[in-house]
């Protein structure tokens, strides 16, 4: 045995004696310590799982309520408002101007929401600052044309049944990253049941690998 180990062997005897001498006081301290430990553990554990996700996201109400179901009923499909432009780029959320193609009655205001639209945006010639649930960060390049035209996918596959909603749910934004909660974070476990529960790179990759045999190169989805 080495000298060090000899020495430590020796030292440990002292330690054992000392700790034995302090036994009674130790016990209460340790007992209280254990209680404190359990208490702190539970509080932190639970707030980590339950409170933290709530704190992480800020909620924003849409400027006014939008009834997708009603609009789909009137127009018949998604593409009437969310269409591909002639150059293959995607139009996204319609501009106020496009809305006025149909909203021609004067004065508008059949519903409370239409009244807000008319007063705040049409009259003031402003665009509605919609919060976009499916908004990807700036570094992402996404071609709707590739998915709709070339791959023949429909809107529901990725966006879910938003077309059937009659009211706009609040938009949740990650306070730190600015991401929409729909991109990543609806489930803190990271479990996704539907494609539209999560739209991070790995989610894209799963489908890309299945459909094209390759996850793709950087620039395929980034700009």
């Amino acid at each position: 045995m080495s000298e060090i180990e000899n020495k430590t062997e020796h030292g440990s005897m002292d330690g054992a004696k000392e700790s034995a001498a302090e036994d009674p006081k130790n016990d209460t301290g340790l007992g209280l310590g254990v209680i404190f430990f359990i208490l702190a553990f539970l509080i932190c554990f639970l707030s980590g799982w339950l409170l933290f996700p709530k704190l992480l996201y800020s909620k924003h109400e849409q400027p006014f309520n939008f009834d997708h179901a009603l609009h789909v009923q009137e127009t018949g499909d998604c593409e009437s408002c969310h269409f591909l432009r002639e150059d293959g780029t995607f139009s996204g959320i319609p501009k106020t101007e496009s809305c006025l193609d149909c909203h021609t009655d004067e004065p508008m205001g059949e519903t409370e929401d239409e009244a807000i639209f008319a007063a705040e945006y049409v009259a003031k010639q402003r665009e509605v600052p919609w919060y976009v649930y499916a908004k990807q960060p700036d570094c992402v390049y996404f071609s709707h044309a590739a998915h709709i035209k070339a791959a023949g996918m429909d809107c529901v596959t990725c966006h879910g049944h938003i077309g059937e909603s009659t009211s706009s749910r609040p938009y949740e934004e990650n306070r730190l990253t600015g991401y929409s909660r729909d991109i990543w974070g609806n489930n803190i476990w990271g479990i996704t049941k539907n494609p539209w529960d999560s739209m991070k790179m790995d989610d894209c990759a799963v489908c890309h690998e299945e459909e094209t045999g390759h996850k793709g190169y950087c620039f395929q989805c980034h700009k």
Partner: peptide, 19 residues
């Protein structure tokens, strides 16, 4: 330099649109 890859992306979008 990316060889202006975004221009390739735009050209592809056009091609997708034109099928």
């Amino acid at each position: 330099c990316s060889f202006c890859y975004h221009r390739y992306q735009l050209a592809r979008e056009q091609a997708y649109f034109d099928e």
